[in-house]
């Protein structure tokens, strides 16, 4: 009973904070609202007995919101981030798509006869998850690892100040590359 009440309170907080992200009149407030929404969902996942994943969700999202705050200061300046703004387009279409998606998903959730629960969760869930990752589901983690490395490389390449065109010219034929910053490999 108590868990049910806590769940619904968190649900209201999560959805209301999610709505506040796009209703708030500044990006700073929107960031805080998104952080609240994520923390509420993280606690809901904790209520579903997944302590490890719930904690990861909360920690990861709090850090991400901190990074977003840094981005706002970098690209918008702190004052614009705190000032009222409305930068939207196609609101009616977006609302229609959003309501349609909710009706479809919620209708399916309520109308589908879900099967009965199969099996019982292990006593030590986090321990069991660790064994699973290091055992039968090793392939999943072996794929996620290279994807993360590729993401880091792609992120650095995209965000780097200079590109290969800056070094090798528009046709990439300039040799040796004109590197504005010395100290690279072979220099």
């Amino acid at each position: 009973m108590l868990i049910g009440i806590v769940f619904w309170v968190l649900a209201v907080v999560a959805v209301a904070a999610g709505v506040a992200v796009f209703v708030a009149d500044s990006m700073a407030r929107a960031t805080y609202a998104l952080a609240v929404s994520f923390i509420a969902v993280g606690v809901q996942i904790l209520l579903l007995q997944q302590s490890y994943l719930g904690l990861i969700t909360i920690l990861m999202m709090v850090m991400e919101m901190a990074v977003m705050a840094v981005y706002m200061v970098m690209f918008m300046g702190m004052n614009p981030a705190l000032m009222p703004m409305d930068m939207t387009h196609g609101k009616k279409t977006a609302i229609g798509a959003s309501v349609g998606a909710f009706v479809l998903l919620a209708g399916g959730a309520l109308l589908i006869p879900w099967p009965q629960r199969r099996g019982e969760p292990p006593d030590e869930l986090t321990h069991a998850l660790g064994l699973e990752i290091m055992g039968e589901k090793m392939l999943v983690m072996a794929v996620i690892g290279p994807v993360m490395v590729a993401t880091i490389v792609a992120g650095v390449v995209l965000a780097a100040g200079r590109t290969r065109y800056d070094r090798f010219g528009d046709d990439l034929h300039r040799r040796p590359g004109d590197d504005p910053q010395s100290g690279g490999v072979g220099r």
């Binding site: 769940f7 619904w8 649900a11 999560a14 959805v15 999610g18 709505v19 992200v21 796009f22 929404s37 969902v41 809901q44 579903l48 939207t88 387009h89 196609g90 609101k91 279409t93 977006a94 609302i95 798509a97 959003s98 309501v99 998606a101 909710f102 998903l105 919620a106 959730a109 309520l110 879900w114």
Partner: peptide, 20 residues
């Protein structure tokens, strides 16, 4: 069902934001 309805609401709100 309750969990899925809340998840659907979050998804729909996010969809609105991503489009608008």
């Amino acid at each position: 069902e309750a969990v899925l309805v809340v998840a659907a609401a979050l998804f729909a709100v996010g969809l609105y934001g991503a489009l608008s």
